[in-house]
Design a protein around this nucleic acid. Structure first.
Lengths: 265, 265
DNA sequence: TACAATTTGTGCGTATGTATA
DNA sequence: ATATACATACGCACAAATTGT
């Protein structure tokens, strides 16, 4: 089906489309009203989230989209620019507008906030310690919004920077959404979010993290080479997709002897 | 002096201002080139930073600024909207464009990333433990970019939420820039950034934080009521103004028994 | 190498809606 | 009711980057 017309746009308050002797506008005062460019933005986001335009592909040009939706290019540009601000698409002059992927250099660091003490950022290598399928804890069921009887995939791995292990990660996913992940692929890639995106069609759009200080336990002593009881930072992350649906629960413990968690306000 | 004309705008690539039989553009390829709206943005930022429009005041309207700079309203809007995105100004329909202050509710929380374990955010009360003037450490001299022989003001305080002390802060400022702060005002306000802005004309525009895990020492035991050696999060912040000039060095130690550091990516 | 076609980026102008004082 | 200021939406022209011929 050619995507030529998308009708149900509420243009009631669109000035240049209103005849002067139009009906008095009664409805559009409702709290559900959204300006035209916001509606376009949502429509585009739905089409991206639905998989119509997979990550990495180029979407139609401004001009063609504008005529499809029967809006001006300026209005469509405003919608696209908001999607750029939300890290959903990437635009390049002369080339086009592409759906954002997790392989661009900048995108990789968006979800890795750890720097060496002199401020350098570099990506760690990962070593998987275990992959299991099991019933969720109560906490996991709540944060991942699992159905009753659902199961989770649990991945535990260590990440090391320049040869020293600094991070012990426990990653939990809805087994229904990531069915085969328990034992396939054989070797997991360094950057899991790329895998979620490419193999499972789930794009991590943003994440919330809360940090607390904890003591190193047996596992951290063994894997990170820290002393027992050594202070660590525990990072509790919930990663979500475009529609705020939770995708992943990740709890990491960070040794801050050589590296630190960085945040810019 | 009436601000009527601002001449040195490089409009070489401004299409509608160029005659068709113009000289071939040779210069504007230089790496220093900035589009017109970026230049306008910088000019506005300079006037805000210079104190011509103090925080809280309304700047001239779009139309008047556009005619002052001899650009279109659209170009000026684009500059202003970037300043909105940078939290430099706040715009309200029908009212005008105001220079951002640190008293708006949202602005207060921008620099306070601590939430209770159930996700609630609330502002803490402060209790000052000491105010001294002293020579800087080597680290302080470097991060605050102090001149040789300069001194610093050092403020130590505890912040408590709902009656329990959770944060021990060591705040260090350039004594040359905050001369009277050592003993005046008698009682320091809860939100220091408002004081910097209102009394000293220094606006904190953004900050970088790095977090490490530490053990509670003698001071933390005494002030935060934690056990000796208890794991804490140490937050090392450098706050800067619009031009990235460092204003404040703040090292805080957070007890994460009831509260956590929150970050959204 | 040169040229053309396509696509986004910049800039201008205008009209009307909506919120505020 | 009026005036002001920002918000939305329309349109157009040209610049700059990219790609293919």
């Amino acid at each position: 089906m050619p995507a030529d017309r998308y009708n149900p746009l509420i243009v009631t308050r669109n000035p240049s489309k209103m005849a002067k002797d139009d009906l008095p506008m009664t409805a559009p005062k409702g709290p559900t009203f959204q300006p035209l460019y916001k509606q376009i933005k949502e429509l585009l986001l739905e089409r991206i989230a639905s998989g119509e335009w997979p990550p990495g592909t180029f979407i139609p040009s401004e001009a063609s989209l504008a005529s499809s939706y029967d809006v001006s290019v300026g209005t469509l540009r405003k919608a696209l620019n908001e999607l750029v601000a939300d890290n959903v698409v990437i635009r390049r002059q002369g080339k086009g507008t592409a759906v954002a992927t997790h392989d661009a250099d900048r995108a990789l660091f968006r979800f890795f906030n750890i720097v060496s003490h002199d401020g350098e950022r570099c990506l760690p290598v990962s070593r998987v310690l275990g992959r299991t399928r099991r019933a969720p804890t109560a906490d996991e069921r709540q944060t991942l919004e699992l159905a009753d009887g659902g199961e989770v995939i649990h991945i535990r791995r260590v990440r090391e920077l320049q040869g020293t292990a600094i991070l012990l990660e426990d990653i939990v996913l809805d087994a229904a959404r990531f069915a085969a992940l328990e034992n396939q692929p054989e070797v997991l890639p360094n950057t899991l979010y790329q895998l979620y995106q490419q193999q499972y069609g789930r794009t991590v759009a943003h994440a919330d993290e809360t940090l607390v200080a904890v003591r190193a336990g047996r596992d951290e002593v063994e894997q990170l080479g820290v002393a027992s009881g050594e202070p660590l930072i525990e990072i509790r992350r919930v990663a979500r997709d475009y529609q705020d649906v939770p995708i992943e629960r990740r709890i990491s413990r960070l040794s801050t002897r050589d590296y630190a968690y960085a945040c810019t306000l």
